[in-house]
Design a protein around this nucleic acid. Structure first.
Length: 263
DNA sequence: ATGGTCGGTTGCCGA
């Protein structure tokens, strides 16, 4: 089973990119973040025409928004309101083979890495702190569960272009990376991307729009992640960051990440 | 040290 996660940064603007991604990789399931569309405006017909006749989505006006696109039936769907906010950052569903997939969009957290003066950073820390308790309280680690999305944190030194230069930059500060590592450990989540491509190999999924030449500068960060439960131990066969998509015309600033599961 | 670019409830805000 082939699964892709992607921060698409507006599904309506990039529906042709989604078509190209499907043509080139033929995934079974696509988990999206930053769809930036309300549910009544979701391009369900265009998605159906790509072969994804089963969809679950949760959007709001202008910001955020997550979706699950599947060729097979989706059941038992829902989404948690993290940090007490109904802001369309989480959706989950179960596939016919029993695999539960979660699409998650963690808040970016603003620019100032001080929670006492930056409410957005406090919100991000609260969100990640709740990730640590929510999964153990609501799910069985022995079950087959995949959690993927834009977690907006690059936890490892080789997840950023310069560990030293990014230590005070939101997405790589110790308070965030400690929080994410704690959330991961609390459920026994396995970092499928790093199982496949261990440190110290650099691994990035996001490159800023602001670089003159993103590929030449390569000042990337690994903000997108695929985690699998202990119940899926040994089931991840391949992993690829689809960097080419970052070079398409009018791209998302995030590259899709693909895994094949032996299920 | 600074400013650089996107998308969408555009003339700003969030990323």
């Amino acid at each position: 089973m082939r699964i892709i996660t992607w921060n698409i940064n507006s599904i309506r603007l990039r529906i042709d990119h989604l078509r190209r991604l499907v043509d080139e990789t033929d995934p079974d399931v696509i988990l999206l973040q930053e769809t930036k569309v309300q549910d009544h405006q979701f391009p369900e017909e265009a998605v159906n025409e790509l072969g994804f006749t089963h969809t679950k989505f949760r959007g709001m006006k202008s910001y955020n928004g997550v979706a699950i696109l599947s060729k097979q039936t989706l059941s038992d769907t829902g989404g948690h309101d993290w940090a007490g906010r109904d802001d369309a950052r989480h959706i989950f569903a179960t596939l016919p083979n029993g695999l539960e997939v979660h699409s998650l969009y963690v808040p970016a957290g603003g620019d100032e890495p001080d929670p006492t003066i930056n409410d957005k950073f406090q919100h991000k820390l609260d969100f990640v702190s709740e990730m640590k308790s929510w999964f153990p309280a609501n799910r069985d680690p022995k079950a087959p569960i995949l959690l993927a999305g834009d977690l907006n944190i690059a936890p490892l030194e080789s997840d950023v272009w310069s560990h030293k230069q990014l230590l005070k930059i939101v997405s790589h500060t110790p308070i965030e990376t400690d929080g994410l590592n704690a959330a991961q450990a609390a459920f026994g989540w396995q970092d499928a991307m790093r199982t496949h491509t261990p440190e110290p190999t650099p691994l990035y999924t996001w490159w800023s729009y602001r670089a003159k030449d993103w590929r030449a500068a390569n000042r990337g960060r690994r903000l997108d992640h695929i985690w699998v439960s202990p119940g899926l131990d040994g089931k991840v066969r391949t992993m690829q960051v689809l960097e080419d998509a970052r070079g398409w015309e009018k791209p998302s600033d995030h590259a899709p990440v693909l895994v094949d599961l032996d299920l």
